[in-house]
Amino acid sequence: MIYDEPRFLPGGDRYVTVEFGNEMNLELNFLAQGLATALAQNGTKGVVETAPCFASLLVHYEPNDIRFADLVAELRALIDSLGPSEDIELDSRLFYFETMYLDPWTKECIADYCAKITEKEYDPDFVARINGLEDRHQLVRVHSGSEYWVASLGFWPGLPFLQPLDPRAMITCPKYNPPRTWTPQGTVGMGGSASAIYPVATPGGYQLFGRTPVPIWDTEKRFDVFDGNIVLFRPGDRIKFVPVTQAEYEAAEAKIDAGSYVYNMVDYQRFSVRNYHRWIATVDKDERF
């Protein structure tokens, strides 16, 4: 549910969690990101940083500059001034990522898991089956059919938790049990209703079905698009996975290795919750691509 009044939950001496509800719902994330943006624009004294998650916003504050009770009062006033979530508009960059679905590298990773840990169905077939899709090829059409919303980042620095913006691309699946000991860098996968890209090779638990060569982690400052940061994404970005062949994947990878790769990103759009609502009201959510 979405709470009538957000809850303000203390976390030690320096944090407060603003909880907007208790479900996975893009609306709650829009509220969290809307509040984060409003706090940044307002320049509220004592707010050190914020971190949106699916249904809440974590606020890190400096207690020497603002008392807990005063911060809660400020947050309440800001939330009231935001008005209904309909009015929220957020700057949103859109990244196009070459992605090879059903690629040999995640296939090898899955085979290694089956050999060393436990037998399981090939992830794309499993995810297609439990979501009532025809086959793995329809999974590719469905998954690549939507833009994805960066709801939050975590688990590993720079790892984006993504929700499809198009309800026709909404699918769900359980995570691995037990988890994997390794996952190739750039793997695209999902668990629950969230998709993710693995920034570097790490353990993990998501079902795997594709890989992108495009770096989202850069400690060597090789690409200007990172703007001095180590991780690419910020909350409120969008990603579109563009299916490519292995030859196209490798061509992009060669450019990345040479440092000549050009990120396909556009940065002129604002995400309007009102326009988004207007559009999804016209969409038959049971349709599949």
């Binding site: 976390g11 030690g12 320096r14 996975m24 249904a55 809440s56 974590l58 939050s152 975590g154």
Partner: peptide, 22 residues
């Protein structure tokens, strides 16, 4: 007593930000 997307274990919650020291 919580929506299923919280997860199946009693200690599961819809993913949230963690305070340092939690």
């Amino acid at each position: 007593d919580k929506p299923p997307e919280n997860g199946s274990d009693a200690s599961n919650i819809v993913d949230q930000g963690y305070p340092l020291g939690a």
